[in-house]
Design a binder for these strands. Sequence first.
DNA 1: CTGTTAGCGCTTTCAT
DNA 2: ATGAAAGCGCTAACAG
Lengths: 329, 329
Amino acid sequence: MNIYDIAKEAGVSISTVSRVMNNKGNVNPATREKVEEILARNSYVPSAIARGMMSKSLNKVAVLTVDIRVPHYARTAYTIEREFSRRGYEVSLCNTGGELQETVKYLRAALEKQVDGIVLVGSVFNTICRDPEIEGLLRTTPTVLANGKLELPNSYSVLVDDKYGIGLAVDHLVRKGHREIYYLKDMDTVSARLKCEGFLNSLGRYGIKDAKKRVVNTAMSIEGGMKAVEQLLRKGNTFTAVVCGEDVTAAGAVKALLHAGLRVPEDVAVTGYNNSEYARICEPRLTTIDNKPELVAMLCVQLLTSLIEKTEAYSSCTIQPELVEGQTT
Amino acid sequence: MNIYDIAKEAGVSISTVSRVMNNKGNVNPATREKVEEILARNSYVPSAIARGMMSKSLNKVAVLTVDIRVPHYARTAYTIEREFSRRGYEVSLCNTGGELQETVKYLRAALEKQVDGIVLVGSVFNTICRDPEIEGLLRTTPTVLANGKLELPNSYSVLVDDKYGIGLAVDHLVRKGHREIYYLKDMDTVSARLKCEGFLNSLGRYGIKDAKKRVVNTAMSIEGGMKAVEQLLRKGNTFTAVVCGEDVTAAGAVKALLHAGLRVPEDVAVTGYNNSEYARICEPRLTTIDNKPELVAMLCVQLLTSLIEKTEAYSSCTIQPELVEGQTT
DNA sequence: CTGTTAGCGCTTTCAT
DNA sequence: ATGAAAGCGCTAACAG
């Protein structure tokens, strides 16, 4: 069933049917009513594909994320989807796992299908997008990067000042009298490096020595947090505070401390990062850094919408995280 | 840049270019090479929209979920996306919030864009899809429901036996000697009702009286779990075990018990549901029910793929959950 | 206010 | 092995 069938049944031309469907141009009210009745009776669904042939757009954006199961990405993707949906855009989603091949494959498919814009969620894309093939693909379509920066003509970004964010945690701990502070670093993305840098800088600012020796590399998981703390305890390091790059790692750290018979925060303070549900489930509730994924998502959508519709002025921007005090400090 | 430009540059007809791009039909190796070179040099991206006009398919499925931020849905959606991607399908995602209007709006858009199939994730869709408008929309396109049943010609489902799942938790507790068991019920979806039914049936099976009085309604959140337990304690109810319909509620229940100075599991045992990261972050780690979202997702994808490609036999099926013992029982 | 017609970029016969 | 031409279902410019 297509526009010709409807036109025939109504005894009018396809132009008239098109005008009725799109509320465009003038149509005799009687004719309109008649056509609308037929449309409704057949619960007619026009083909967006055919429409897209002319308009060159399917009102659709592609969202690339590392892994939607990570709560922080889920929150970001959720807000992006809701905001785009509200604006009449469809959202296509891909979990690239941070892998180049998946990214290329999906990006190519998205461009074949004429997506109007692309959102990259996560700082891994900083690294991945240096690939010349990806740069070639992105050059043609407006792109926004959540938490990363791309040096491409059509790309903009919404950054989170993670260096500052970790600084907030250190400030808070030092204010509470802590000097023996360790940092649990996970992953090796730009964001993770910035957090670590923020830690080192802050310790430097407070004149705390051997900052680099206070960084423990571990996995981004409960087990990662537990193992790192167990290792510190085993080595006999003295410490009164642990700063973590992720809430999930912090939750693991708290677990290991409690299992070792230490009290949190009386013996050792812990801070997380993301202000996630993990922070609230952790007992005691984690002091954490809110890096505002919903705000980042909103700004990404606004930015990309202006780029697509060329309606407003636009520019990249940076978000300042905030400390959320819980019971672990 | 389109197929005509490529043809002109190569000095051949568009048919030949089409044959080269699709590896279909016979093409002189020399000609092929020449065209391929030009395609590559221009990093040519053919229009899937124009292609879709003929083929009537964009190799795309729509995934409707309530809220991707809920870990259980995130895990399901993740696996669905990965599996469809592997099979060459694109995934369009929507967070309907369980609302009828959003569902209708998105479904209509998806059908206009010729999606090949639809996956509904969550038992809310059981209720929502009784709406005649939605039934009309779904009638035309193959649909699979994760954790729900639809009485429509083109719809199939992958069910989870949640009644049995909660039964496993009760069995486990009774085996450990508990008789004073309460149930924290959240939400009012079909799945939530089945869980509650499972609780009531199990208590009946063990001859535990006043089962209905042992059901506490609360919100699906940490606070919901905390409030429910605080209420039980305040009312002076004696109980040795709390069964919860969700891990997040169970985590709240554990918190409230610990805050009240009770020991878990020595004074009160707790069970969760979903075998989520929340269960592992909770200290002590929750005993919980694994309802296998990854398996459900895989089966949904297999089912929908067979429906779309009409390749294999297909039928609805039911998954049996399993108990995962933690430290709260 | 309404109809005719020319595309949109591709696939697919059907000739050659 | 290759090309010409007819659509796919719609929009939009133009004519009436």
